[in-house]
Simulated scan of single mutants.
Amino acid sequence: MTTEPQRLQYLEAMGLTAWVARYQLPHARPTEACEWELPERPVASPPAERLHALLDEAEAAARQPTPPPAVEPPRARTVKRARHLLGIAAPDEEASLNKPNLEREQAVPPETKPAQQPLRFTLQVTCLAGRWLVIVPGQATPDATQGQLLSNLFQAAGLELPLAFETFRWPPMENLPVEAPLDEAREGLQAFVEGTQRRGWALERILVFGQDDTLARLLCTEQGTFELLGLPGWQGPALSELAQNAAAKRELWPTLLGWRQAWSEESADNDD
């Protein structure tokens, strides 16, 4: 790229005068007229000669070979390598080895942790008389057939109705930073259950209809107790399976008797 001084020199060598336009700014004070002393200029050579001289200088500079890089003598390289193998280094070499390579450290980008995805799940939740929490995993609320099946089961067990499901989704908002997906999901579910106390719920037991692996990881089911919430619980077949499988219904009858007894005992404890 030709610089401005060099361009002006080329124009002057070709006999062309470069004029710089000057404008008076609005509301500016006029410049006072004065006489400038012109510097003495040597007699210039003809424009053609000066142009050829500039071209010759540029061509000579382009042809000038670049100096080769300094090569360390073979003997010096051999001695230096031998010193390194023996563990002996000159003071200047040792300082250069111990000196951290800041440019290399700045060039290497820091390790970035891959963005983690949140744990995603949807639950349909209801509560029996503010005491027993009923959870049905899935995005869709129980249909009429499944709702009638639940009502029949709870009536047979002597539990109070009606049922009104609401949806709990995790995560509550998208595009949120995630560091520990499982721990954050557990905290969210626990906060939801603790928040039900504001509605007057006093949870005593949890019933889960559906073998959902994600929910099992969240609740940490161990020996009939949901460790996360610290409440006794039961997790059995899904409502769709119970509605179509007569054997699953028969296997559930002993459990219904246990629910009836637990409901009565907990009611008596609350009355006392």
Score class of each variant (00 low, 15 high):
residue 115 A to S: 14
residue 90 A to R: 14
residue 186 R to Q: 14
residue 249 K to L: 10
residue 173 M to N: 12
residue 236 G to W: 01
residue 164 A to Q: 13
residue 26 P to E: 08
residue 202 A to F: 02
residue 71 V to E: 13
residue 198 R to A: 15
residue 228 L to V: 05
residue 163 L to R: 02
residue 204 E to Y: 01
residue 153 L to C: 02
residue 10 Y to N: 05
residue 218 L to N: 01
residue 214 T to W: 12
residue 268 A to R: 11
residue 198 R to D: 15
residue 213 D to K: 09
residue 70 A to W: 00
residue 127 C to M: 07
residue 221 T to C: 12
residue 52 H to P: 11
residue 121 F to C: 01
residue 256 L to Y: 04
residue 116 Q to N: 06
residue 102 L to N: 08
residue 49 E to A: 10
residue 209 F to P: 04
residue 110 P to D: 11
residue 121 F to I: 01
residue 204 E to K: 07
residue 184 E to M: 11
residue 243 A to V: 03
residue 135 I to C: 01
residue 91 P to E: 13
residue 84 H to I: 09
residue 91 P to A: 10
residue 44 A to R: 15
residue 236 G to N: 00
residue 241 E to P: 04
residue 191 A to L: 12
residue 266 E to Y: 00
residue 224 G to D: 10
residue 144 A to I: 03
residue 14 M to L: 10
residue 67 P to T: 12
residue 231 L to C: 09
residue 149 L to S: 06
residue 110 P to F: 00
residue 165 F to P: 01
residue 179 E to I: 12
residue 159 L to H: 01
residue 175 N to L: 07
residue 9 Q to H: 05
residue 123 L to D: 02
residue 21 A to H: 06
residue 271 D to F: 04
residue 17 T to K: 15
residue 107 A to I: 12
residue 168 F to E: 03
residue 225 T to Y: 15
residue 247 A to E: 09
residue 256 L to P: 06
residue 57 E to H: 05
residue 210 G to S: 01
residue 80 K to S: 14
